[in-house]
């Protein structure tokens, strides 16, 4: 089955040119000019990746991300105007998996989409069940339970958790996590890791302010407590 990308962008010319470029990658592309139409289109035919411009008329890109997250774990890439504003963190906190800054080269976009698609299918890692106290991970089935209750993680959150679980107690630097989960090199944005850890904590921790499972190691990175 062909991979479907949903592009949400109010500028028709950009939308069309991006569609042409993505179709050259062999992907099917759906387009939506507003957040409302994007939600409707996604419900009609779920996409494998959603590309969301933050500056949308009507429902904002942030709200669209939050709405999508209510019922889907689809990988979302947000397009922001600037990389150093609050937009990036806000977009990631609204549920986005990655971001791009306008104007980006379509090559960058397809590289990001490929990394997300790779990530959306985590490798088994050789373990069928990983147990951390009340937290249980079943990598093959993509399932995580906390005290027996099933958690709904996005694909990126799940992949991040699985990477941390590869070496329980071992410290993972931001660089390593950016490389393994997002496919970024040295110049990846560490905020991707930080916000995803924060999001993951709200799901797998009883008290996210005092995490017991995913622990910060000052100046070094993160560790999954065995």
């Amino acid at each position: 089955m062909a991979i479907r990308i949903l592009t949400v962008e109010d500028d028709e010319r950009i939308r069309t040119s991006v569609r042409l470029a993505l179709e050259d990658e062999g992907w099917e592309v759906d387009e939506a000019p507003t957040g409302e139409e994007a939600l409707a289109a996604f419900r009609r035919a779920p996409a494998d990746v959603v590309l969301v411009d933050i500056m949308l008329p009507g429902m904002s890109g942030f709200d669209l991300c939050r709405n999508l997250r209510r019922f889907s774990d689809v990988p979302i890439v947000v397009v922001t105007a600037r990389s150093d504003t609050h937009d990036v963190v806000a977009g990631l906190e609204a549920g986005a998996d990655d971001y791009l800054t306008k104007p980006f080269a379509p090559k960058e976009l397809s590289a990001r989409i490929r990394a997300l698609l790779r990530r959306a299918r985590p490798s088994a890692g050789g373990h069928s069940l990983l147990v951390f106290g009340d937290l249980e991970i079943v990598p093959d089935e993509g399932r995580v339970t906390l005290a027996g209750r099933e958690l709904s993680l996005t694909k990126t959150e799940f992949r991040l958790l699985c990477e941390l679980a590869q070496d329980p107690g071992g410290v993972f630097s931001r660089e390593v996590l950016l490389d393994r989960v997002w496919g970024y090199g040295y110049f990846g944005d560490g905020r991707l890791v930080d916000v995803h850890v924060r999001r993951l904590r709200t799901k797998v921790e009883v008290d996210p302010a005092h995490p017991r499972h995913i622990v910060t190691v000052r100046g070094l990175g993160y560790r999954l407590q065995p």
Partner: peptide, 13 residues
């Protein structure tokens, strides 16, 4: 930036 996005994507195509 908007026309540039269109330009960059179209040139790539």
């Amino acid at each position: 930036r908007s026309p540039l996005m269109t330009l960059a994507a179209s040139v790539e195509v």
